[in-house]
């Protein structure tokens, strides 16, 4: 037993958490799982498709009708937003406002092939790795909001550490007021996050949307994290703590987008112009 303890402690001291890359042995073992995990994920994906196809036709036509209406509304909303975007860019240029903003991402789309095999860690395995240009610490998003960051990469897969992981902390602000700064922590629960270090005078209330603050090097600014569901005062009375419901439904997540790099809007505009 003593031998096992000593050996474990030696290995632990050699493999600190801030490793740049995983070892060759870890890459080999992980890549041995990827083809099988992709296979199972593919079977599940097709099975879900068949199940939907054979589901009640009446419900389907009702869903199609509602989606058509929703789509029309979104198209109109999108046109308005494009107008606002152009206006914002013009104003930003006039004011020489050089702060980088979330606007143009260079994305890699990936499929979720596996999930955490243990309850202590919350992660996803995606089917894109080094070959697709994925590297450690790239931010990962879904159309709904923030998913997490790339923790480690092998040749054909990457492990995405979720924002719900107990080791994750993300700098955050309120979307509406842009004032309240805090830290969003994972609690190992896919339906709950915790925002801490909120000053007691903050105008924070249930239903507010929390976005990334952009203060870290990993997450770009303005990505939706979650919605405030409860605010409580800490015993000291100087700080508030809030419970958040994540924007992303982690249990149903099948595809994600890895942010390879992102450009400030002015750069993106110039690139668009260059492309014609």
């Amino acid at each position: 037993m003593l031998f096992v303890i000593v050996l474990s402690l030696i290995i632990m001291s050699k493999t600190s958490i801030h490793r740049e890359n995983i070892t060759l042995l870890e890459k080999i073992i992980r890549d041995s799982y990827t083809p099988l995990q992709s296979g199972v994920s593919g079977v599940k994906y097709n099975w879900d498709g068949w199940t939907i196809a054979f589901a009640n036709k009446k419900n389907q036509s009702r869903t199609i009708e509602s989606l058509k209406k929703q789509n029309n509304n979104l198209v109109m909303q999108n046109q308005k937003l494009l107008e606002y975007r152009a206006e914002a860019l013009r104003l930003r240029k006039i004011l020489a406002f050089a702060e980088p903003k979330r606007d143009e991402y260079n994305l890699i789309s990936a499929r979720v092939v596996a999930r955490n095999s243990q309850n202590w860690y919350k992660y996803l395995v995606i089917d894109q790795g080094q070959e697709a240009g994925v590297v450690k610490d790239m931010a990962v998003i879904s159309p709904q909001g923030l998913v997490g960051r790339v923790g480690s990469v092998s040749r054909n897969s990457a492990q995405v550490i979720l924002i719900t992981d107990r080791e994750t902390a993300v700098g955050a602000i309120l979307q509406k007021t842009r004032e309240t700064r805090g830290i969003v922590e994972g609690l190992g629960n896919s339906s709950q996050l915790r925002m801490v270090n909120i000053p007691y005078y903050s105008k924070i209330e249930k239903g507010n949307i929390v976005v990334t603050s952009g203060l870290s090097k990993v997450y770009p600014k303005g990505i939706a994290i979650g919605k405030i569901s409860k605010v409580t005062k800490e015993p000291s009375g100087l700080l508030l703590t809030a419970q958040l419901k994540p924007m992303t439904d982690f249990d149903k997540l099948e595809e994600v987008l890895v942010i390879k790099d992102y450009f400030p809007p002015v750069e993106a505009l110039e690139e668009d112009a260059a492309d014609g």
């Binding site: 632990m12 600190s16 992980r30 095999s117």
Partner: peptide
Amino acid sequence: GTVYGFLCGLLEDLVLGRFIGMNALAKGL
């Protein structure tokens, strides 16, 4: 049993790719 527990935990640690040794020690113990 201890060696088998250690090796199984080590395999989990290698798949996880984080802090190698934690599961190995926990399962060995």
